[in-house]
Amino acid sequence: MRIEFEVNNRPVVLDTEPDRRLLDVLRDDLGLLSVKEGCSEGECGACTVILNGRAVLSCLTMVGQVQGGRILTSEGLVKDGELHPIQKAFVEAGAVQCGFCTPGFVMSSYALLQRNPNPDEDAIKQALSGNICRCTGYAQLIEAVQAAAKANNE
């Protein structure tokens, strides 16, 4: 089936089976390897991408469902080789350890800051509650989002 959508502000046209997982299409067909597979059942958030402005799980999305949609991955946040302020804040706050969960957390943070540029700690926790990190203990992730919000607002 012919499926058309937009990924990281570029149009994509694919001829593929529509019941493949969006995760596999992004990784295997489009080479967007920031999108990670951690659990395959929507419980870890490592495969989080933005679909039409909302954070969703690409492991539970059928590629046919994104027909005509707009997708953003961590690769799409990098502009002219420069990290996005959220990505930079993750480095500076020490929110990155093993790095496997990081792109998913970055996308959940991005979705939050798009809707709420001044989130309080509860809002941050709420927005990141669908992503599991086993390394950091989460404190530095909260600090990173706070720093990114501050940088955005300056």
Partner: peptide, 17 residues
């Protein structure tokens, strides 16, 4: 800052998969 964090933050670090 960790010098391996930059690649990880943008999702460029190459894991086995």
């Amino acid at each position: 800052h960790r010098n391996d964090a930059w690649a990880k933050a943008r999702g460029a670090a190459k894991f086995t998969g």
